[in-house]
Design a protein around this nucleic acid. Sequence first.
DNA 1: GTCTATAAGTGGATAGAC
DNA 2: GTCTATCCACTTATAGAC
Lengths: 218, 218
Amino acid sequence: MPRPRQPRLTRQLIVETATALIDAEGLPAFSTRRLAAELGVRGPSLYNHFATKDEILDAVADAVTGAVDTSGFASRDWAAALLDWAWSYRRALTAHPNIVPYLAQGPGRRPAALAMADAVYGGLVRAGWPPARATHIGAALRYFVAGSALGSFARGFVEDPELYAAHYPHLRQAHRLAEHQQSVDEGAFALGLDALLYGLAAEYARTVGAVESGRPNG
Amino acid sequence: MPRPRQPRLTRQLIVETATALIDAEGLPAFSTRRLAAELGVRGPSLYNHFATKDEILDAVADAVTGAVDTSGFASRDWAAALLDWAWSYRRALTAHPNIVPYLAQGPGRRPAALAMADAVYGGLVRAGWPPARATHIGAALRYFVAGSALGSFARGFVEDPELYAAHYPHLRQAHRLAEHQQSVDEGAFALGLDALLYGLAAEYARTVGAVESGRPNG
DNA sequence: GTCTATAAGTGGATAGAC
DNA sequence: GTCTATCCACTTATAGAC
């Protein structure tokens, strides 16, 4: 026999609505009252499901991180797995850029972030990278992805040619960046990621590969 | 209480105190009242020097960015200049990590950020990089630096061995990251930056260098 | 240029009714 | 499990006295 009336709130519904609210209005605009209003309830009702506001934010951050795909580390060579992971990571964060400053405070105790770190670190070590190097690589990629999701580079420029021409001689075309925001940001990410992986592959060949030559990376 | 002979507030003093306050207590704790208290005045007095709270934050962000050294682009080859710039940029941001989320929203109209973009872009173009590529390189480095300053990777882990051992097999040593936070974060940055520059140098040799062989980069 | 006073509102969170 | 009622510290910003 189902319950006559379903509870209006569930943890999942709260997290989904909180995510949408943060996406739409930003982290500073996110309050328990505002969230409750969005859910059609009053503020205090949320406290039946979460103890504090930060617990809600942690759940949102964990859900965002949970969308990242690390499966490549199980089946592909380390470089291809890093590439797949970085793009998936970037997609997950750029889908919810406003939560990034909160999320980037550190993997902390959030399960999804720890599972991701575990998969990446494990995959790199399995491929032969020394543990300390694997840590550095995972962190470096995290820096790059978080930074790219944090704030669009192109978005920072305004669409007013006059503003830049006067004082910044090389930025004469900068106003055009605003038009091509997405392709500039993605192009910069692609360039940086490719260069990074190129450099890592060179170091791998120089150190790990020289020792375990002939051993497949997967 | 008699009024002081000298004005107690100046824009510079306000910005310096605001920076210290944000460093010490974080962006959410920063309020005009809290700042005024720190300066020994009442909240409204600040509005004689800045029109809004955001104007103060912009001034703080601009001061932080203003500490970045881009002089290498005038005198050194592009790769060495990028390396110097990236480290200087990182030092400036990690000295004030709590302002990074605000600062990273985009270069916007802040003079110091625009001057920095101008110097970097101009230096790269002068070295022979195609304009579109120069934009991507500057943005990619910005992503990496901002991400590295935004949140320490190592800090995210707690110093409790038991917490990770159970569920994340590869993170058995992760609690040790907390001890070596600074060296892990700097090592990850150094590795990523070197790999990135290695990859860029390869592309430069493949494209620009092939066309303008023999031309000095400076 | 700093002050008092105040506007007009939001914040997270709790107690206890139903 | 949601409600009403409530707490009160706190927010940015303005008006006008001195």
